Simulated assay, not measured.
Amino acid sequence: MTVTDALDLRILDVLKTQGRISNSQLAAKLDVAPSTTHLRVRGLVERGVITGFLASIDQEQVGIAIQALVGVTLRPGARHTSINAFSEDARSLPEVLQLFFLGGGDDFIVHIGVADTGALRKFVVDHLSGHPSVASTRTSVVFNYHRNGVAASF
């Protein structure tokens, strides 16, 4: 089921950047009754439009000084098995912040966070380039980024 009207969209617009806003603050911001926002948010959660509330963590504060996006191309042959195996293996690694399965030049983009460049090199060599399904990798270091919201997994 999808969002049904403009008020739902306005609620989502606020929540995507202020997930911890109180119901009364949300209602005041949208100029509606608190009971309205309470029912609407609960309905969005029940319908699966809102899939969760996440904490945004300052990665440097927890020892992650380097982030990178690694493009991964899989070896040809047995694609379905390779895609599933690589995806499951990559998701299990604590350094993986996000994993994107793509159509196009790369099969995956792996967003990773590590302590330093030595850890970045070790991760790419050991876990990505060294994976039996991987044909090649291409690493780009992230200098800075901006996020407008968090998308749910597919």
Rank of each mutant, 00 (worst) to 15 (best):
residue 117 T to V: 14
residue 131 H to C: 12
residue 128 L to P: 01
residue 20 R to Q: 09
residue 19 G to V: 01
residue 147 R to N: 05
residue 9 L to Y: 01
residue 138 R to N: 10
residue 89 D to T: 14
residue 144 N to F: 05
residue 29 K to V: 01
residue 154 F to V: 15
residue 44 L to Y: 01
residue 150 V to G: 06
residue 56 S to K: 07
residue 79 R to Q: 15
residue 122 K to M: 08
residue 64 I to N: 07
residue 6 A to H: 07
residue 5 D to F: 06
residue 89 D to K: 10
residue 71 G to H: 03
residue 90 A to K: 00
residue 78 A to N: 09
residue 110 V to R: 04
residue 123 F to V: 08
residue 129 S to W: 13
residue 15 L to M: 04
residue 34 P to T: 13
residue 151 A to T: 13
residue 10 R to C: 02
residue 150 V to A: 15
residue 58 D to R: 03
residue 121 R to L: 14
residue 113 G to E: 09
residue 56 S to I: 05
residue 108 F to L: 13
residue 106 D to G: 02
residue 120 L to G: 05
residue 84 N to L: 13
residue 38 H to Q: 11
residue 1 M to S: 12
residue 119 A to V: 06
residue 6 A to I: 09
residue 122 K to R: 14
residue 121 R to C: 14
residue 97 L to D: 14
residue 30 L to G: 01
residue 129 S to M: 15
residue 153 S to R: 08
residue 141 V to S: 14
residue 119 A to Q: 09
residue 75 R to G: 11
residue 132 P to C: 10
residue 146 H to D: 05
residue 3 V to L: 13
residue 141 V to D: 15
residue 47 R to S: 03
residue 51 T to A: 03
residue 130 G to H: 06
residue 119 A to I: 09
residue 104 G to Q: 12
residue 74 L to E: 07
residue 33 A to H: 12
residue 13 D to T: 00
residue 93 L to I: 08
residue 95 E to M: 12
residue 26 L to R: 00
residue 138 R to Q: 06
residue 44 L to E: 01
residue 77 G to R: 10
residue 32 V to W: 01
residue 116 D to F: 00
residue 144 N to P: 04
residue 39 L to W: 11
residue 122 K to H: 13
residue 116 D to M: 07
residue 130 G to R: 02
residue 110 V to K: 04
residue 91 R to N: 14
residue 135 A to K: 03
residue 100 F to Q: 07
residue 29 K to S: 05
residue 78 A to D: 10
residue 86 F to H: 02
residue 125 V to E: 15
residue 64 I to H: 02
residue 4 T to R: 14
residue 70 V to N: 03
residue 5 D to G: 13
residue 106 D to W: 01
residue 57 I to E: 05
residue 56 S to G: 11
residue 37 T to I: 11
residue 32 V to P: 00
residue 44 L to N: 00
residue 141 V to P: 10
residue 24 S to L: 09
residue 18 Q to Y: 11
residue 112 I to W: 02
residue 107 D to R: 04
residue 42 R to G: 00
residue 77 G to D: 12
residue 136 S to M: 05
residue 49 V to D: 03
residue 98 Q to C: 00
residue 99 L to W: 06
residue 24 S to W: 02
residue 65 A to N: 12
residue 128 L to H: 02
residue 30 L to K: 00
residue 108 F to K: 10
residue 8 D to I: 05
residue 150 V to D: 12
residue 40 R to G: 04
residue 153 S to F: 11
residue 93 L to T: 04
residue 52 G to D: 07
residue 151 A to V: 09
residue 145 Y to H: 13
residue 41 V to Q: 00
residue 83 I to N: 02
residue 111 H to S: 11
residue 32 V to N: 00
residue 134 V to N: 00
residue 65 A to D: 15
residue 48 G to Q: 10
residue 90 A to Q: 00
